[in-house]
């Protein structure tokens, strides 16, 4: 491995860590909204701080996603897509958090009000 290789790797690490730091700083906002989009159509905007009763939302397209909403958090609970990446992403609760089901074209992301 040459010096340039190490330089490239160092630059990438610095850029990535800087970006993660920015996420962390921006993530400390309150009053967050979860936005569910399927196939470029807005399904629902949810004010997460105002969720009283946990509930589920089903989004159907090429596949089916079951999304669970609780107070201050949201996640893909079940999906019949092949890779299950959306389910494995787990709970979203901070600004900027995002979970995507590429096969079903569903995105949940957390935005500020």
């Amino acid at each position: 491995m040459k010096k340039n290789d190490i330089l490239l790797i160092a630059i990438i690490i610095v850029i990535s860590l800087a970006a993660l730091l920015v996420y962390n700083i921006l993530g400390k906002a309150e009053q967050l909204k979860a936005v569910i989009v399927h196939d470029n159509q807005l399904i629902e905007r949810i004010d997460l701080s105002k969720v009283e009763e946990p509930r589920t939302i089903t989004v159907s397209g090429d596949y089916h996603n079951i999304i669970r909403v609780e107070k201050d958090r949201i996640r893909f609970e079940k999906s019949d897509c092949p890779e299950q990446i959306c389910v494995h992403t787990g709970w979203l609760s901070k600004f900027g958090d995002i979970a995507v089901c590429m096969p079903n074209k569903t995105i949940i992301d957390i935005q500020k009000k």
Binding site: V37, I107, D109
Partner: peptide, 20 residues
Amino acid sequence: LIISQPGIFYYLPFMLLFSI
């Protein structure tokens, strides 16, 4: 492009770190 959601670039730093 497929999901018309630039927010997916949120993943980029994680992916870059994993690329190494």
